[in-house]
Design a protein around this nucleic acid. Structure first.
Lengths: 361, 361
DNA sequence: CTGAAAGCGCTTACAG
DNA sequence: CTGAAAGCGCTTACAG
C-alpha cells in the first residue's frame, strides 16, 4: 500500500476525496501502455507508433493530464526548468516594467515563464533574489545589477546558469550585456544645451554606485570640457534616488544665488530626477526660463508646456535583445561574450531648446 | 554505480568536471548524520540535539548547500512551492505594475516568489498563464481576469489552488476579490461634472467585456439619470483598448457637429483613454474649453495646464490586500468568500472643474 | 519500437 | 531523538 493510497482512504472518511491530478502512470494505465511510452509521446520524442500515440493522446485528453514540469526537470539532464529570473530595480518603474514586458514576450514565445523581482538598488536584496532564483533552478537570469562588483556571482557551487546583464554592464564578472549608450547620449545632450548658448548647466544624477549614473556624469563632464567649460561643483547634485530627493536638490540649485539665476539649464540624468526637476520648475513658474533636458523618457512629458526634451532610451529593445542573447546561450551558443550597445534618441520638444537669452537673471 | 557517478567519470575525461551543487546527501556524509537529520535541521523541525544541529550547519556552510525547493515540494504534502502566479493585463501598464509591486512586497516578506504574466485581455493567453502556473504548482494565484466567465477555473482536475481576483470580481466562480468601487466612483465623477453645469458629457470606455468598464459606464448612466439627463448614444464611445483608439474616438466626439461644440465635458473611464483624450484636446488647443475627468491616475498629469482631474485608484492597496487575502487562505482560512471594495479619491486639478460657461460653442 | 528498473533531491511514514 | 526505507512524478540508461 503506497503512502498516497493510504492518504486517500483516510481522506475519504473525513472530507470529500481530493480530486487528484492525473499522472503519467494514470495515463499509461488508461492507454494500456508503459509509463515510458507516455513520456515519449508527451515529450514528442520520435519513434513511437502512430497507434500508440493516438492511444496516449486520447488518455491524456480523457484524464485531463497536465505535464508536471517541476517533476520532469528533477531527473532531466541539464535540469531545464523552463523558467528564467529577472532582477529589476523596481517592477513598478516604467523603464523596468517596459523591459520586463519585452523579456516576457521573448520568453513566452518559447514556453518559458519569468520570475521578476525588485532589488531596490540594495545589494542584499539582489543577492537574495539570485539565491531564490537559483534555488528554483531557473535556466538563466537577466539582471539590472546594483553595486559595482558582481564577482560574487562566480561563487563556487553556483550552478552554471547563464546571466545576461541589461542596462548596466557587469563588473568583475564576464557575461553578455545590453546597455544604453549612456556616456555618448549624455555628451550629446549636454552639447545640445551648450549649442543653445548655455554655459552654466546643472546636473542631477542618480547614486554614483550605479554605473549608468557614472557614465552619464562622465558624458556631462566630457561635453563641458570639450567646450572649455569648467565643471562647477555647486551645480552638480548626485546620489539622488527619488523624485523627492530630486525636488530638494533642484530647489537648492535654483536657490544658489538669490539675486541672479545661477544656472540657465539642467541636465537630469534619470527619469525620476527629470520629474523632480519639472515639479520644481513648474511650481516656481520657471519652466520657460530654465532649459531642461532629461535622460530617459517621461510619460506625457510631450503635452507639457514647454514639452520636455529627452534622450529617449529604448527599454523594449534592451529587454528583447537581452532575452535573445540569453536564449542563444541556453541554445548552446559558446561564442565570446557579447556587449550590445543601444543608442539613445534626442527628442526635442521645447524645454531643451530654450535659448540662453530667454533665461533672464 | 549510479547514473550520476557514471556521468561524472565520463565527463572528467572530456571537459573539466562539472561543479555539482551539494545535496542533502553530501551534507549528511560530511556531518556524519543521516539524510533525515539534515532535512530536519534545514527545515527547522524541533527535536534535534544542539550538537547535531551544529554539525549539520557547519557542513551546510562548508559545502555551500542550498536547499532545492523544487525537489522538496515534490514529495511534500500539500506540495507548497513557495511561489504564486500573478495574471495581469500587461506587466508594463502602470496600474498593473504598481499592483505587481505591492503583491511582490507581501510575498517577499514570506519568502514567496511571484510569477507574473500579461494576458493582454486575451482569454486564451489568460488560460495559458493559468495552465503554466498550475503546471509549476504555484501555491495560489492572483488575477486581473479578462472575459465575463471564469467558470473554466472550476474544471475537474485543476488543483485546489486558491485564487484571489483583483481589480475585477470573479463571474460564475466563487472566490475572494479586491476591487475598486468603480460604479460609485464614476457616478461621483460624473455628478462632479454635472455640478459645474455640464449637460452634454461624452464617455470614453474600455472593452465592454471587462466588468470594470461596464461598472464605470453604469456609474455614468446612473449619474445622468439622477440628474434627469438622457444618455445620448453618439456621445458614448466604448470598446476602446489603446491610446490610439481613444484618440480616434475623441476626435469623432469633437467632430460630431462642426459648427457647435456638441459636448462640453468628457468622462474618460480608464488611464490610457484619458491620455488619448488629453492628446486630442491639447492638439486642438481645447484643453481649457472642454472639461475632462479621468478614471485612474495619469502620471505627471498634475503638471499639465489645466491639471487633469481624476478619480484616483489605489493599485498598491489593491495588490497588498489581494496578497493578504491569498496568504490568509494559504494559512488555512476557511471563512466565507470575502469581497473587499477599495474607494476612489476624487482629485480636482482643474480640468474637471472647467465651468460650462467657459466651454464656448 | 517498447518497457522494466533505477534514479533526480527531497519528504513522508514508520521503526527503533 | 535518530535513521532506513519508500515514495513524489518524472527521465535516464539500458535491455529486449
Amino acid at each position: 500500500v503506497t503512502d498516497r493510497a493510504k492518504t486517500e482512504r483516510i481522506d475519504s472518511h473525513v472530507v470529500a476525496p481530493l480530486r487528484r491530478r492525473a499522472t503519467m502512470t494514470d495515463v499509461a494505465a488508461k492507454a494500456g501502455v508503459s509509463l515510458k511510452t507516455v513520456s515519449r509521446v508527451v515529450n514528442r520524442e520520435t519513434g513511437v507508433t502512430a497507434e500508440l500515440i493516438d492511444k496516449v493522446n486520447s488518455a491524456v485528453k480523457e484524464l485531463n493530464y497536465r505535464h508536471d514540469v517541476t517533476a520532469s526537470s528533477l531527473r532531466r539532464l541539464g535540469r531545464k526548468s523552463l523558467s528564467i529570473g529577472l532582477v529589476l530595480e523596481d517592477v513598478a518603474n516604467p523603464f523596468s516594467s517596459s523591459l520586463h514586458r519585452a523579456v516576457e514576450d521573448v520568453a513566452h514565445s518559447r514556453g518559458v515563464v519569468v520570475f521578476a523581482g525588485s532589488s531596490d538598488e540594495n545589494l542584499d536584496r539582489e543577492k537574495n533574489l539570485v539565491e531564490v532564483f537559483d534555488g528554483r533552478h531557473v535556466d538563466g537570469m537577466i539582471m539590472i545589477a546594483t553595486g559595482s562588483d558582481q564577482s560574487y556571482l562566480r561563487e563556487t557551487d553556483r550552478p552554471d546558469t547563464p546571466i545576461v546583464f541589461v542596462d548596466r554592464p557587469p563588473q568583475h564578472f564576464d557575461a553578455d550585456s545590453v546597455v544604453t549608450d549612456n556616456e555618448a547620449g549624455s555628451r550629446r545632450g549636454v552639447e545640445h544645451l551648450i549649442a543653445s548658448g548655455h554655459r552654466r548647466i546643472g546636473f542631477l544624477g542618480d547614486l554614483r554606485s550605479i554605473s549608468t549614473a557614472k557614465r552619464r556624469f562622465d558624458g556631462y563632464v566630457s561635453a563641458l570640457q570639450q567646450a572649455n567649460l569648467a565643471v562647477d561643483p555647486p551645480l552638480v547634485k548626485r546620489d539622488l534616488c527619488s523624485v523627492d530627493e530630486a525636488v530638494i536638490a533642484m530647489g537648492q540649485l535654483l536657490d544658489l544665488d538669490s539675486d541672479t539665476l545661477p544656472l540657465t539649464a539642467i541636465f537630469a540624468a534619470q527619469n525620476l530626477l527629470t520629474e523632480g526637476a519639472l515639479r520644481v520648475l513648474h511650481a516656481r513658474g520657471l519652466q520657460h526660463r530654465v532649459a531642461l533636458l532629461g535622460f530617459d523618457e517621461v510619460l506625457l512629458s510631450d503635452l507639457l508646456r514647454p514639452g520636455v526634451s529627452v534622450l529617449a532610451q529604448d527599454p523594449t529593445q534592451l529587454g528583447r535583445r537581452a532575452a535573445e542573447l540569453l536564449f542563444a546561450r541556453l541554445d548552446g551558443d559558446r561564442s565570446p561574450t557579447q556587449h550590445v550597445v543601444v543608442p539613445t534618441t534626442l527628442i526635442s520638444r521645447g524645454s531643451g531648446e530654450i535659448p540662453v537669452r530667454d533665461c533672464q537673471r
